[in-house]
Design a protein around this nucleic acid. Structure first.
Lengths: 201, 201
DNA sequence: ATCATAATTAGAATTATATTCTAAAATATA
DNA sequence: TATATTTTAGAATATAATTCTAATTATGAT
């Protein structure tokens, strides 16, 4: 009996080729100025293959987004939960974020660029699930720190904003090439700044 | 003698009608899912009119962006330069930002959504000019504060990130309806947090 | 008021490109 | 090896942006 949904050996590879090609195209040309022909040329896949593996250009863009976010978030949680001390934990997160960005410039640019993109709609559910799992674990870490009085009590909404906001803004500048500050300096300064904002007294 | 480039009285009005309609369409449907027919219907302008006044859909989107940024930045500078004290100045800026966002939700959503859009290319020059004028005046204010030792000395790149980052992140959440914190509370808390980060000692 | 010129409007024709579709090729299973 | 399934290919189609031509409307000079 034939197994349903059997998948060829090369499928994963082809999928990756298309994703990699599309990521580069979208970053270089922008989503709208990237034609399917661009993606096909770069990935050496045919239109048929692209549409066989992805429902649409939009969906392809969305899957790339998810792939990046998954990798980023997984490392983030790992870095955070390793640290039980508040100050060290905050340093670790900032460090993780900036190093990830530095080591994954293509992905970072894409994630920034697409953060508010409309194509998130079709994958909203998957995205919301990822985010709530992620935010849940970050919140847990913070709750512990607040309870043991390491971190000041504030409206819960504001923690991620105060913690990551400066980092995000710096990242934006960094990726657009408008920042002169080296990553290592930025890590130290931004972590210190976050700590001054968040610490209890 | 006929003046060159004479402009009809209604041109400004029509332009505004198109911009207003497009802003709403882009926010509701997304840039890509908004057709020119949507914009035409909503603005009661014909395709011909739209293309007479704007080079392309992209250009139209860009002009809307500039219009929003201009208004935001003008108010920002006015709020900032009114204050000579460091702590008060920072409070003023945060307050200005969040109140502007609250009072201009459509524009804010659009500015966020489009912050990294590719269509910025054609207006890059105009945009860079706006930004450098803006950043220059913000930097001046900070320089004064640093020289009189109110604000700690740090790599220059980091001031805007530390000052506005948390605000931006909060704004993002606020606009997407995921924040429970009221604007007035957020102003106070975020301004305090920024001050703790930035103040000298 | 009227003529000459320029600006604006309208929408049909064109162009560009995302998507669908059909059939062939490759792979997997029995 | 025979048969079902997946994958590939690219031509055909559909959709939506842009261009173009002609008509309309406004302006300024006389």
């Amino acid at each position: 009996m034939k197994t349903l949904n059997s998948i060829h050996k090369k499928t994963k590879k082809r999928r990756k080729e298309i994703i990699d090609a599309a990521l580069l195209c979208f970053n270089e040309l922008g989503y709208n100025n990237t034609g399917l022909t661009d993606i096909c040329k770069r990935s050496h896949a045919s239109i048929g293959s692209v549409y066989h593996l992805f429902k649409s250009k939009e969906q392809l863009a969305a899957e790339i987004y998810l792939e990046g976010i998954r990798d980023y978030q997984a490392g983030y949680i790992k870095a955070l939960e390793k640290e039980t001390g508040a100050e060290k934990g905050i340093f670790c997160i900032i460090k993780y974020h900036l190093q990830w960005v530095d080591a994954n410039k293509d992905w970072s640019s894409y994630l920034f660029q697409m953060r508010h993109a409309e194509f998130m709609n079709p994958i909203e559910e998957e995205f919301a699930k990822l985010n709530s799992e992620f935010m849940g674990r970050v919140s847990n870490w913070f709750r512990t720190q607040i309870e043991n009085k390491s971190i000041r009590r504030q409206p819960a909404d504001l923690y991620p904003a105060i913690l990551m906001g400066p980092c995000q803004e710096f990242t934006r500048m960094y990726l657009s090439g408008n920042s002169k500050t080296k990553i290592d300096i930025a890590i130290k300064e931004l972590a210190d700044a976050a700590w001054r904002s968040l610490k209890n007294k």
